[in-house]
C-alpha cells in the first residue's frame, strides 16, 4: 500500500498527458550522453553482425604466419593471433554468432516463458499448480548449470547453445509473467470488463495481456545481455560452434593459451562482450525507470 496524495496522482496524470518525459531527460546531460553512447555501441555491433564484410579490414579466416602475434597497432587495431589472423576482423565477424545467441535465446525463452506464465496466471487452479511446480523444479537448477547440462547433452553447436540458454531462462520469464497477470487480472478495469459481459478470452486479449507486458520488455532487454554472457560462457567452455567463424567467447577461450605472450587476444573479445552487454543493460535500466508506474508520479 503506497501513499498516493492527490498531488502526486495529479502530477502522474499530467506527465502522461504531456507525453511522459522520461527521467533521463530530466536528470540532464550525463545520463543522456551515456544513452547516446550506448545507442552507438549497439548500432555498431548490429552493423557488425549484419554486414561484417563492410566493417572488417581483413577476411577473418586469413592466416598469415608472417604476421603472427602482432600487438595492437595502426594496421591491426586489435593485434593478430598465433595464425596471423587480424583479431579485429575476427571480432567483427564473431559478433554475428554472439548477437544471434543473445537475441534468439531471448526470443525463444522469453516467448515460451511468457506463454507458460500467462496461461498459468490466467487459468489458475490445477493448470497453475502443475505449471508452477514444473517451473519451480526448473528453477532449482541454476541457469548456467542447466544450460551446461543441456548443452552437454546436445553437444557443441550454435543452435544447441541457443536452446540451452533459452531453456535456462524460461522459469524467470514464466514467473514474472505469471505475477504480472495475477496482479493485472484483479485490477478494477478487468473486473469492470467482466461485469459488462465480456468473455474470459476477450478480457484476456483486450485487457489483461496488453497491460501485463511492460515488465517483460524490461526483462527481455536485460535478458539479451544475460544471454550473451551465458552463451559466450558456454562457448568459452568449448560448447560453441566449431565450424562457423568463432564467436566472442570462443575467441577468448583460444586466447587464454597465449595469455602471457599476447594479452590482446583475450582482452579484446571480452571487451566487445562487455561493451555490448553494458549498453544493452543501460537501456534496460532506462526502460525500467521509464515504465515504472511507481516512479511516474514522483520526483527522484
Amino acid at each position: 500500500m503506497r501513499q498516493e496524495t492527490a498531488l502526486t496522482r495529479w502530477i502522474g496524470r499530467e506527465r502522461i498527458a504531456r507525453g511522459r518525459k522520461p527521467s533521463a531527460a530530466r536528470r540532464g546531460g550525463t545520463q543522456r550522453l551515456l544513452l547516446y553512447g550506448a545507442a552507438a555501441v549497439v548500432i555498431y555491433f548490429l552493423a557488425c553482425a549484419i554486414v561484417p564484410q563492410w566493417l572488417a579490414p581483413f577476411p577473418p579466416m586469413e592466416m598469415r604466419m608472417d604476421r603472427s602475434l602482432l600487438p595492437p597497432g595502426p594496421s591491426h587495431w586489435f593485434g593478430t593471433d598465433y595464425y596471423g589472423r587480424d583479431l579485429y576482423s575476427v571480432v567483427v565477424y564473431g559478433s554475428r554468432q554472439s548477437l544471434l545467441v543473445g537475441i534468439a535465446s531471448v526470443l525463444a525463452g522469453g516467448l515460451s516463458g511468457a506463454l507458460l506464465g500467462a496461461v498459468s496466471g490466467y487459468a489458475g487452479g490445477l493448470v497453475d499448480a502443475v505449471i508452477m511446480r514444473a517451473v519451480d523444479v526448473l528453477m532449482t537448477v541454476p541457469g548456467l548449470l542447466l544450460a551446461l547440462a543441456v548443452a552437454a547433452a546436445l553437444g557443441p553447436g550454435r543452435w544447441n547453445i541457443v536452446l540451452a540458454v533459452a531453456v535456462a531462462s524460461v522459469p524467470g520469464y514464466a514467473r514474472v509473467m505469471r505475477g504480472q497477470i495475477l496482479s493485472v487480472k484483479v485490477r478494477p478495469y478487468v473486473r469492470a470488463s467482466a461485469s459488462i459481459g465480456a468473455s474470459p478470452s476477450r478480457v484476456f486479449w483486450t485487457h489483461v495481456l496488453p497491460n501485463s507486458l511492460s515488465p517483460l520488455y524490461v526483462m527481455s532487454t536485460l535478458g539479451i545481455g544475460a544471454s550473451i554472457l551465458a552463451g559466450s560462457g558456454l562457448s568459452f567452455l568449448g560448447l560453441g560452434d566449431w565450424n562457423a567463424s568463432p564467436d566472442w567467447g570462443a575467441i577468448l577461450s583460444q586466447g587464454r593459451g597465449y595469455m602471457t605472450v599476447a594479452w590482446w587476444i583475450s582482452a579484446f573479445p571480452g571487451f566487445a562482450i562487455t561493451a555490448f552487454v553494458l549498453s544493452v543493460n543501460l537501456y534496460g535500466d532506462w526502460l525500467r525507470d521509464f515504465l515504472d508506474p511507481k516512479k511516474n508520479a514522483r520526483g527522484k
Binding site: R9, R187, P188, Y189, R191, A192, S193, S195, I196, G197, A198, S199, T206, H207, P210, N211
Partner: peptide
C-alpha cells in the same frame, strides 16, 4: 454459466468505486 450468463449481464450493470482504476488506461 458462460454465454447464457453473459447474456444476462446486458440488463445488470455496475458502477465502480474507483474511477481511476476501473478503466483500461490505454
Amino acid at each position: 454459466r458462460g454465454r447464457r450468463l453473459r447474456e444476462v449481464r446486458r440488463s445488470m450493470q455496475m458502477i465502480f468505486q474507483d474511477p481511476y482504476g476501473s478503466m483500461d488506461p490505454r
